[in-house]
Design a protein around this nucleic acid. Structure first.
Length: 441
RNA sequence: UGGGGCGUGGUCCAACCGGUAGGACACCGCACUGUUAAUGCGGAUGGUGGUGGUUCGAAUCCACCCGCCCCAGCCA
């Protein structure tokens, strides 16, 4: 770096500009835009931490002026100047440019394709590697990073140990139609994981309270704003834990993620024009309603859902609109839930599971509950679901050797971040989204 | 996999009950010392997703194909 930053002491990032009022500093970044007004130029610089307006006078700094005049968008530049408080500048500060070093000029014959104008989704997604430079996309990615940091901070603080699950798996955990099959060594077949859950149950029996955090893959033909084929999931699991323990953990985790974003990424939420008043209430306790209560609420609002139905997008949106924070729906009918869900001893037709529904129509962000810990019952469920028992022998071992009641859940990172950011579509909250018809770039 | 919608210059759109494909932005030039996706004036480039059909004539009508978007199912 020293080759291009003679005086490292004065190099700052744009987000630090406010701490250097009236000082000479050097910024290293890219030219976001230039406005011309006679013998004054107003270049806008970005460096990944923010954007700042510059001012350059032809009369006072002719060399810098000539370097910037007509310079192409996204050319990389190192600029030196005086930071000053300026209420006419976006952000409240500007840099009076005295010196400009062009690191690479974007050629005029091949200009930066993304203009400061409206573009279609397909155009932008084809150029996702460049789109992420825009202030809005950069803000989203910073909020995503904060959500991950806060989630791990919370889990670690609750005594949970991170234990990673494999990406290659031998079989499905819930059916085979949505699995990505890959060629493994010597003509073996393997599948990309749909969930780390089965493995995290094993590590919970080894370490007590654990979680996984990693990518999961689903070859679902879903083409909605809530679906990706590759998404990240955080999955806690705890031995000797029950349904209510997991609902408490879920509300604590989600609250901490939201409150951390509000506290540490306020500027980015402003960039997104997110109505943060709607996030401020997201603190424990979250409402908990049973499936049967949920059906009653839906019916009172004219929805025709009846006992035994699973909830779709309409039902989720209607239910969540009743509350100012996420709502947890528990004890669904066992028939519509996964084979590993523990039945309610009071009501064996109900499963000790729960979903957490985010407000504002963002849908299910958590699904989980107690797992079947009885060997015979689990075998019965595997057979009922026509799952290959051989592939689940290791999973059955967990019920053979010191089985205990246990519970956990999966939190969908992108849905949670999409809700925090208030984005229209989930694909904006992951650096390089993978959807059913898109694997580029 | 169903239902609905959309493919027009580099980009975003208009023309679509058939009749000369147009605008804005971007780009280039000039003017402007406080601009806010700057503005004003001037200029050059460049397009109907593909194949076939109907017709004197197709961006427009028809068939098939390709691509994309939204919704549903499934799920996080």
């Amino acid at each position: 770096m020293s080759a291009i930053t003679r005086d490292a002491a004065s190099v700052i990032t744009i987000e630090q500009a406010g701490q250097h009022d009236a000082q000479q500093v050097t910024l290293r970044g890219w030219l976001y835009n230039v406005r011309e007004s006679g013998k004054l130029l107003f270049p806008i610089f970005r460096d990944g931490t923010g954007i700042i307006q510059g001012v350059c006078s032809q009369k006072e700094h002719p060399q810098a002026f000539e370097a910037l005049r007509g310079l192409t968008q996204e050319s990389s530049v190192i600029v030196t100047g005086i930071i000053r408080s300026e209420k006419r500048a976006p952000g409240g500060y500007e840099i009076g440019v005295t010196k400009v070093e062009i690191v690479q000029k974007v050629p005029e014959s091949d200009p930066y394709p993304i203009q400061l104008k409206e573009h279609g989704v397909d155009f932008l997604l084809d150029r996702r590697h460049l789109w992420i430079r825009s202030p809005r996309q950069a803000a989203i990615l910073r909020i995503r990073a904060e959500a991950i940091r806060a989630a791990r901070e919370y889990m670690d603080g609750q005594g949970y140990t991170l234990t990673d699950a494999p990406v290659f798996t031998p079989a499905a955990c819930e059916g085979t139609t949505t699995l990505f099959e890959v060629n493994y060594i010597d003509d073996q077949k393997a599948y990309l994981t749909q969930s780390g859950q089965l493995y995290v149950e094993a590590t919970a029996m080894a370490l007590g309270k654990v979680y996984t955090f990693g990518p999961t893959f689903r070859a679902e033909k879903s083409k909605t704003r809530r679906h990706l084929t590759e998404f990240w999931m955080l999955e806690p699991e705890a031995a000797y834990a029950d349904l209510s323990d997991m609902m408490a953990l879920g509300e604590g985790l989600v609250s901490h993620m939201v409150q951390s974003a509000l506290k540490n990424r306020q500027r980015e939420l402003e960039t997104l024009k997110r109505d943060t008043a709607k996030l401020a209430n997201v603190r424990p306790p979250f409402p908990r309603i049973s499936y049967e209560e949920a059906i009653r609420i839906l019916n009172e609002h004219g929805n025709s859902a009846k006992m035994g139905d699973d909830f779709g997008g309409d039902e989720e949106t209607l239910l969540s609109s009743e509350y100012d924070r996420p709502v947890m729906v528990h004890r669904y009918p066992a028939a519509i839930k996964a084979f590993y869900m523990q039945p309610d001893p009071q009501r064996p037709d109900l499963a000790l599971g729960f979903d957490m529904l985010a407000p504002e129509g963002y849908g299910e962000i958590i699904g989980g509950g107690q797992r079947v810990h009885d060997y015979d019952l689990l075998v019965k469920r595997l057979r009922e679901n026509k799952l290959p028992e051989e592939a689940f022998q290791w999973y059955l071992d967990l019920r053979r050797y010191g089985s205990v009641p246990h519970a956990g859940f999966g939190l969908g990172l992108e849905r949670t971040v999409a809700w925090i950011c208030g984005t229209e579509h989930i694909r904006e909250v992951i650096p390089f989204p993978r959807t059913i018809y898109r694997v580029y770039p």
